[in-house]
Amino acid sequence: MSVTTLKSGSMLERVLVSGKFAVTSELGPPKSADVETIKEKAACLKGVCDAVNITDNQTAIVRMSSIAAGVLAMREGLEPVIQITCRDRNRLAIQADVLGAYALGIRNILCLSGDHQRFGNHPTSKNVFDMDSIQLVNVLKRMRDDKVFACGDEIRNSKKAPLVAPEIFIGAAANPFGDPFPFCVTRLGKKMRAGADFVQTQCIYDMDRFRRWMEMVRDRGLHEQIYILAGVTPLKSLRMAEHMRDNVAGLSVPDHLIERMKSAADPKEEGEKIAVEQMQELRDIPGVAGIHIMAIEAEKSVAGLAEKAGLLPRPIVD
C-alpha cells in the first residue's frame, strides 16, 4: 500500500488499512506532573498494542493534559491516540490544540462529548460544549481534508504561505448499549458521515446485544466505511461486575458473567479469562476490525491478555 493514500500515516491507520486486526489500549495520564508513571505504564504497553488512547480529564477529574502525556508516551515508543472532549474547550482552543498536537507528532485523535463535570473533582466548574463530538469529528475532517478551520479560513500563515494542515486519523466512541437503542446505530452512521475513520466501542459484556448491534451496523454497510474496534474491560472482581451492571449508564453485564465471577476461586483470573474469551469471540464477528482493551489503572495486565488472546506479536506495517 502506498503511503500517499493514507490520511495520517499513523501505525493504527496502517494496521487497519492493511486489513490486520488492530489492538489499542488506554493510558490514563497522572493526576500530577509526574512523568515516571507515564514511563512505567508505557513500558507495560509497548509492543502490545498498535496505539494507546491518552484520556482527556477522564471522568472530569483533572489530570495531565492528554497532548502532553501523549508526547511523553510517544518518547517511550508508543503511538498515542489523543482523546479530546468537548466539555472543557471551545472551538478555538480545540483547533489550536489540534495544530499543536500534530506539530508535536501526534497522528490519532479521538473525539468525545466528555463526562459531565458533575462527576469529577470540579463539580462547580462551567462546562463548554461549544460543539458536540460529531461536530468535532467534522471540524477535524475539514481541517485535514479541506485544510480549513471551522470558520472556513485556510490553515496557512498568510495568503502566500503554504497550507500546513494537521493530518489526523480521526476516531470517535460508539456505544452499542446506549438508549435509545435504535439511535446507537444512527449515531455511528452520523459519526462516519461526519468524518470518523474509526470508532472504539464502550466495553462489551453483553455479547448478544453487541451481535445485534453489529447486525444493524452491517445492514447499513457501516462496517465497510468505518473501522470498528470492540471495547473490552477485564473484570477484576464481583464488586466491579456488579458496579458496572448497576451504576454505569448503558452497560449491561449478563447474569452468567456475574455467576462466573461469584463462583470463581480467583475472581481476577476469572475476569481475565472472560476477557480473553470475549476477545476471541469478538474477533470472529464480521465487521469488527480490532480490539480496544481498556484496563483501567491495570496497564500491566494488557500484555498478558493480548498474549492469551493470540493478538501478539503486533505487526509492523510500513
Binding site: 463530538s133 460529531i134 461536530q135 446506549g178 435509545p180 439511535f183 449515531r187 452520523k190
Partner: peptide, 10 residues
C-alpha cells in the same frame, strides 16, 4: 448535544 444522546442516556 445537537446530534444525538451521549453514552450516559439510560
Amino acid at each position: 448535544l445537537l446530534n444525538g444522546p451521549c453514552g450516559g442516556s439510560a
